[in-house]
């Protein structure tokens, strides 16, 4: 019977994304509620040992599509790999993390297999075999609830940090099964030539659990250094409002919000960010939000967990020093 749950495990440069590991918690929940076995697929080029990291999360079957054309993401090749894996394990549900790749490939997979799709889910529950999902919509101003049917394929992408990753099990159950994908049959005309890494010194906002974000009032690229200092102490990344990006204080790939990136870190520290609705659209899903702003009635405070009404230039360096002291005491 086709009722397996296939977890698509995304890796980047040899590391599995935490957001992909978190999917195993949901997969296990669905297996308990609806039956079916949890299976996993890893796609890439020369990914060797990675697969064993997945095996410890308990999939019953572990498929690996390891071939040079998978070095870079290609919509059609990855779609083919996921569709082939879904057929191989008899998947009824395919789980992806909501990343740039997950958002890009999920719709193609669902369209190709005639399935149902829900992108960026923040809650998933079983109802007599069907799935009730919730997902933020209208710039995060509303939550939409959808039902994906009990019959046919269902493709879900899940917002990072919606679930906690399961503890790795010492006794992996699955052997690695190579998945041969007939890539030539796809005949795609699009090829990725290269990936130009931006500013590899610093982490990207989509890769971290803690984000220190700055607004226009930070003032200049140099002044952003106090935010980078705090981010470094916390092993996080720096984000920015659109106003700060438009003023040239930060590169565009750091922009958080409606026309930037949507993030849901464990901790988001907004420094001198007013909290415009389009900015909130990108970070409202963060677990804990700290607002640092001189204006007590700035809208950011209504979204924040903790607030400090103070000049960011006074507080941020002190905060970095205090965190450093704390973390040094830990080790």
């Amino acid at each position: 019977m086709s009722n397996s749950i296939l977890v698509f495990v995304e890796q980047r440069e040899g590391t599995i994304l935490p957001a992909s590991l978190q999917l195993f918690t949901l997969a296990q929940q669905l297996a308990t509620e609806q039956g079916g076995q949890v299976c996993a697929l890893v796609v890439g080029a020369r990914i060797g040992e990675l697969a064993s990291d997945c095996a410890a999360l308990g999939p019953k079957r572990l498929l690996v599509a390891d071939a040079p054309p998978f070095r870079y993401y290609s919509p059609r090749a990855y779609t083919q790999a996921i569709c082939d894996a879904a057929a191989t394990v008899g998947a009824q549900t395919v789980l992806l993390a909501t990343t740039a790749l997950g958002r890009d490939v999920g719709p193609r997979v669902a369209a190709k297999l005639g399935g149902a799709l829900a992108t960026d889910c923040t809650s998933v529950s079983s109802h007599n075999g069907s799935l009730r999902i919730q997902r933020p919509s209208y710039c995060g101003k509303c939550i939409a609830e959808l039902e994906l049917p009990a019959d046919g394929l269902r493709v879900l992408s899940v917002r990072p940090n919606t679930f906690a990753a399961p503890e790795p099990d010492a006794a992996p159950a699955a052997e690695v099964e190579p998945l041969a994908v007939d890539i030539d049959a796809i005949g795609s005309r699009a090829t990725t030539l290269e990936v130009v890494k931006s500013d590899s010194m610093h982490k990207d906002v989509s890769e971290v659990d803690i984000i220190v974000s700055g607004g226009r009032s930070v003032g200049s690229e140099e002044d952003f250094s106090i935010l980078y200092d705090l981010a470094e102490v916390l092993d996080g990344a720096v984000g920015a409002s659109r106003a700060a990006v438009d003023a040239g204080q930060q590169p565009r790939d750091r922009q958080i919000g409606l026309t930037g990136k949507v993030v849901s870190p464990r901790l988001y520290i907004a420094c001198g960010i007013d909290g415009a609705i389009q900015h909130l659209a990108g970070m409202r899903g963060s677990r804990v939000i700290v607002a640092i702003n001189t204006k007590a009635d700035a809208p950011i405070f209504s979204a924040a967990t903790y607030g400090c009404v103070v000049d960011l230039f006074e507080l941020v360096p002190l905060l970095a020093a205090e965190c450093k002291r704390l973390l040094a005491a830990d080790s």
């Binding site: 980047r12 870079y72 993401y73 990343t99 740039a100 790749l101 699009a190 090829t191 990725t192 030539l193 290269e194 990936v195 130009v196 890494k197 931006s198 590899s200 982490k203 990207d204 989509s206 890769e207 790939d253």
Partner: peptide, 8 residues
């Protein structure tokens, strides 16, 4: 993409 630009 996260952390860079892909040239396609």
């Amino acid at each position: 993409i996260e952390g860079g630009l892909e040239v396609v």
